[in-house]
Design a protein around this nucleic acid. Structure first.
Lengths: 193, 193
DNA sequence: CGTTAGTTTGAGAGGACTCAAAGTCTGTGG
DNA sequence: CCACAGACTTTGAGTCCTCTCAAACTAACG
């Protein structure tokens, strides 16, 4: 898949970009493929990259008291970054790892800023992406706030159908803030929140 | 406080706006004052307004099984809206109420869109505001994900110092996803997570 | 100064956790 | 193509944090 078609795909999926803006963007991006289990970003690294999944799946996670806690999942057509590193320019507590054989597009913060300065429509695009991310977080907060373990599991299944077939259960459990054992017990019961 | 100084204040606090953009913005905003306890937005209303707190405090909340759950607090210099209503254009499950005698600036979604189309720097401003909101949500998610009631309380105190002196404890409790009684017991103990 | 809103305290129940061990699946090398 | 190793999931037993229900207390407001 060449850079131009990827840019067109993004332009269609989010907000349309002008021809010169598309060209400028295509000139900045890098396309990379990685195997399952490979790490894209390491904790503590200063990471100013954002990734767009062309194919595959990835997750961001961090360690809390030595425990692996998943913080974000992304699949084809979605974005992922070490959020604090990218937006605040500080070393990130997040790791990003590939969950499947994946291909992704990579763009640096500096390029995003340059493109945003130069092209109003790129500023628009990046705003739309941030808004969508914020709305997803909003749903997630509502799910975490006052729900039982079973409700949270059913919520994530509704939000990301088939996630239980693409992501190990231990990662889903930490993402919704419950233990692996509790999730296992929920799954073995006939649905009743 | 006149509209021009408010616009200047926002321009300085977030990202600077050009003179024509400031003027266009000043022409669109409405300034309103409300007393403590007044409701700005009712659940189910189609609400396309965003508010900027010039002075005072407000909260967004919704009802879950008849229980009042706080979802967002805003103080002077911050924004608040019924997030789903504003960004998705759907009737909002949120109420917004004034927690103190407050003055706020009001702007409609349509005006935000018009200004964003016309002024690149307004697009920038709105993006910056959304990014800041997203980063706050990010912190909140991390706090909700795997923390004890006591940790969550100390987290919010760190994020919003003095919140316990401006907002009733019952609202703080629901915001961090614990019951009022548990919060009360935490507060009566010498700090030990 | 009574009424309502908000907070504290108590007792008991239960959901989710921890620790532990046994299964199951998957991929790689012999 | 089978067998083993490592990764992942299930099951069990016991504990504890936070919840629920209830009632008393305190502060704020007209």
């Amino acid at each position: 898949m060449d850079k131009v078609s990827i840019v067109n795909q993004i332009s269609e999926a989010y907000t349309s970009l002008s021809k010169p803006c598309k060209e400028a963007l295509a000139a900045k991006i890098a396309v990379v493929s990685v195997g399952k289990g490979e790490v894209l970003v390491r904790q503590g690294q200063y990471t100013d990259k954002i990734f767009y999944l062309i194919a595959g799946a990835a997750r961001a996670y961090y360690l809390k008291d030595g425990k692996d806690i998943s913080d974000w999942f992304a699949f084809e057509g979605e974005f992922i970054s070490a959020i604090n590193g990218f937006f605040l320019g500080i070393p990130s507590p997040h790791y990003i790892e590939s969950l499947e054989e994946s291909t992704y597009l990579q763009l640096s913060r500096a390029d995003v800023d340059t493109l945003s300065d130069k092209y109003h429509d790129f500023e628009r695009l990046s705003k739309v992406i941030v808004i969508q991310t914020m709305l997803k977080q909003q749903q997630r907060i509502a799910s975490l706030q006052f729900h039982s373990a079973a409700e949270k599991y059913h919520n994530i299944l509704a939000a990301i159908p088939n996630i239980d077939q693409r992501v190990p259960l231990m990662h889903i459990a930490s993402y919704i803030g419950i233990t692996l054992e509790t999730l296992s017990r929920i799954r073995s019961q006939p649905r009743r929140n």
